[in-house]
Design a protein around this nucleic acid. Sequence first.
DNA 1: CAAGGACATGTCCCTTAGTACATGACTGGA
DNA 2: TCCAGTCATGTACTAAGGGACATGTCCTTG
Lengths: 192, 192
Amino acid sequence: MSLRHGLLGLLAEGPASGYDLSRRFQEVLGALWPAQHPKIYAELGRMVDGGLIDIDSHGPRGRKAYRITEAGRAEVRRWLTQVDVDHTVRLEALLRSYFFWLMEPDDLARHLAREAEFYTEQAAIYRAYAERKDAGEFGSTPQVQSMRITIEGGVRVYEALAEWARWAATYKLPAAADGGAPEDGTANSDDG
Amino acid sequence: MSLRHGLLGLLAEGPASGYDLSRRFQEVLGALWPAQHPKIYAELGRMVDGGLIDIDSHGPRGRKAYRITEAGRAEVRRWLTQVDVDHTVRLEALLRSYFFWLMEPDDLARHLAREAEFYTEQAAIYRAYAERKDAGEFGSTPQVQSMRITIEGGVRVYEALAEWARWAATYKLPAAADGGAPEDGTANSDDG
DNA sequence: CAAGGACATGTCCCTTAGTACATGACTGGA
DNA sequence: TCCAGTCATGTACTAAGGGACATGTCCTTG
C-alpha cells in the first residue's frame, strides 16, 4: 500500500492534481517505484472517501487539485515512523543470473555488456541530477534535501549493478552448459 | 511471468517437487525474487498443461516430482536470450527516503541506523555464502558458478544500500520539517 | 479555422502477488 | 501410542500491477 503513502507524501508538499502526481512519480521515482496513472486516480478517489485528502480546487480541462488533510498528514507520518519497511527486492536481472549456466558464452557476454551499459546509463542520469542539486539549482528546502538522498540511493544501486555486470563478465563459467540434469546425464538435445 | 522461467530454470538442473522448488526459491533467491508456494503450485499445473514440464515420479505423502521437457528447456533458453530484461526496481526504502523531510531528526536517525544494520546483515549472509562457495564446499559445476554470480549481485546491492543508509545519516537535513505546504505555511499539528 | 499535441481524467479487464485457510501423510521421540 | 514437527499439496479470496481503451479540453501554429 505504499502508493497511497507516496501520494500523501507528495501532497504534503502542497496541492497537486492526479496528472501532476503521475508526472512526479515518473520523474524521480519512476525507476525506483513505478506507478501508472490508473492506479493513482483510483487511489486518490479512495483517499478522498477516507478523508485523507480533499479537493482543493477545480481547474481547466476538468483538472482537480487535491490537498492533504490533517488525517492524511498523520497517516503519512505514522507510515514513516511506525510501519516496518518492506524490504522486498525483486531484481529480474539477478534471477536471470542464476540461470547463466544455460546460456551460450557468446550470448552471455553480449547480455552482460548490455546490462552493464544500461545500469551505467541509469547511474549517470541520477548522478547528473544529483550534481544539479548540489549546484543549488533547486534550492535547498528540506524537500530538495530529501530528494537528494533518494537520488543518491539510485546512483549507488545502479552503480553497484553496473559493476556487478562487469565483474560477472570476467567471471569464468566452466562451459557452455547443455542443460541436462547433472545427476544423471540422460537428456540430450542437439537443437539450438 | 518470470516465476515460470525461474521454475523452469531450476527444473533444468533436474527433477524436483513443488515443495523442493519453494524451498530453493526461499534459500538463495528469497531476498531477490520472492515466490510463495501457492503461486508455485499453480504455475506448475499450468506448465504441465502447456507441455513445458511433466510429472517425473510420485513419492511419499503425495509428493510429485516434475521434470522439464524439451519444450520447457527451449522456453527457458528463449527467455534468457530473446526476452528483454525487466529492469523494474521497486525499493520501498528509497521511496521512503523521498519523504524524510517529514520525519523528526531523532526518528530519522533511528530509522537509518536500523536500515544500515539490516542491509549490512543481508550483505553478510550473502558474503558468507559466497565464501563457502569459493572454498569449494559446493563443487564447481556450472550451476554453482552461476549461483555464485547471483550471490555476488546480492552482496553488492545490499552493501550499496547499507553504505547509502550510513551516508544518508551523515547528510544534513536543514530542519525538523513540520509538513506544512512550503508555499503557505498554515497547517499546525502538535501531535507526536 | 482546422489539426495536432499536450493536458487531464477516468474505466475495464486481465494477470500477478500474497495471505489465510484446509488437508493429510510420514517420522521421531516421550 | 500419542503428539509434535516436518513434509507436501492445494483452494479461496483479496489486493495490487499494468496494458488497452475512451473521452474530452485547451493551446499553438499553419
